[in-house]
Design a protein around this nucleic acid. Structure first.
Lengths: 177, 177
DNA sequence: CTAAACTTTCAATAATTTCTGAAAGTTTAT
DNA sequence: ATAAACTTTCAGAAATTATTGAAAGTTTAG
């Protein structure tokens, strides 16, 4: 961690971490791994961030549960080395789908079960609202699922299209129906 | 808060709140406002959730900073009443754009400024990675911006399209080389 | 202007989350 | 089987975040 710009970035990732769904150490550990050209051992990380060995172990576990890092082992060396689990593109997709899983799916499942239980009865206002939220979340997550299954090339094309999506939608509307 | 399903939902929203970027009270207050057919006073909310008056005041302030609720005043009544700031669709858009502002924009700006400072020098690995992250985030937020400017009808069409987006993209590719 | 009816603020406290480091657990080489 | 070289776990300490409630601030009616 010689480069001062790198250091600033790692600290920034640490600060942002809580907004991204993990704690400061996890954010810093992720940064240091992503910015490193070679895989790092837990001791490397512990030393360069000035956090305890145990903390690194927990952060690595968390990052593995997000599928953001992977363990690399070198022959003739007993240490674990950590590296990013794929390209930046892969990591971004992983973050998106993991956050969907943690932030939306539980709510969708609670709403579904509440709505099941009142099915048939005439719904009060709150129930109608639950249905509305449920439908919106389902529409959204369904779309995300679909889009994430696109080939990377198509996904990139979609992103580059930007506002052009509107035009293409019109186009589609004119051709069919 | 008679309805037990409603109560469960409000508690669930409270539990999820920290994953959504606010605290439990803020989550519960939002829920109770969104599920209510009529605007609620701070006292109504304080009583129905069993939290202090001061806490409700801070939660309302936070929710207003997210533009998720608005104050309604009734003539001949000095109390503030809180209601949702628009349709569910509006609220969802608001959450998305506010989270982008809080979770992505600061990082983009840090990356931009770090990259400015090393501009011209031959970049090391970490700098290349910063550039890569910067470009990805910019592509993503630019697309979000564009898409959020679409008319609600177009946006809904896009969501309903789901995986169909892939087909439409191919179509577009065929028509315009 | 004053008092009543509110809302907001903020210092103190409570609750929660994170971090440390020593102990326990695991793996590998011999 | 043993010991060396690791990794993981977890109880307690530290740090952070959330909540309360009383005091200060604001607005409105008369």
């Amino acid at each position: 961690m010689n480069n001062p710009h790198l250091k600033d970035c790692v600290l920034h990732f640490g600060e942002m971490a809580s907004r991204w769904g993990f704690n400061r150490s996890v954010g810093q550990v992720l940064a240091v791994i992503v910015f490193s050209e070679v895989p790092l051992s837990a001791d490397d990380i512990s030393e360069s961030l000035g956090i305890s060995r145990g903390n690194v172990s927990m952060a690595a576990k968390e990052l593995q549960s997000w599928r953001l890092i992977r363990v690399v082992r070198e022959p003739g060396d007993r240490k674990d080395y950590y590296g990013p689990n794929g390209s930046l593109w892969d990591l971004a997709q992983q973050v998106l789908s993991e956050r969907r899983k943690r932030e939306v799916d539980p709510t969708l499942s609670v709403l579904r079960s509440q709505l099941m239980q009142v099915d048939g009865q005439t719904p009060d206002y709150a129930t109608e609202r639950m249905q509305e939220i449920h439908d919106l979340l389902e529409l959204f997550t369904g779309w995300l699922d679909d889009v994430q299954r696109l080939k990377p090339e198509q996904l990139k094309a979609l992103l580059k299209l930007g506002a052009g999506v509107g035009k293409v939608l019109e186009l589609k509307g004119k051709i069919f129906k």
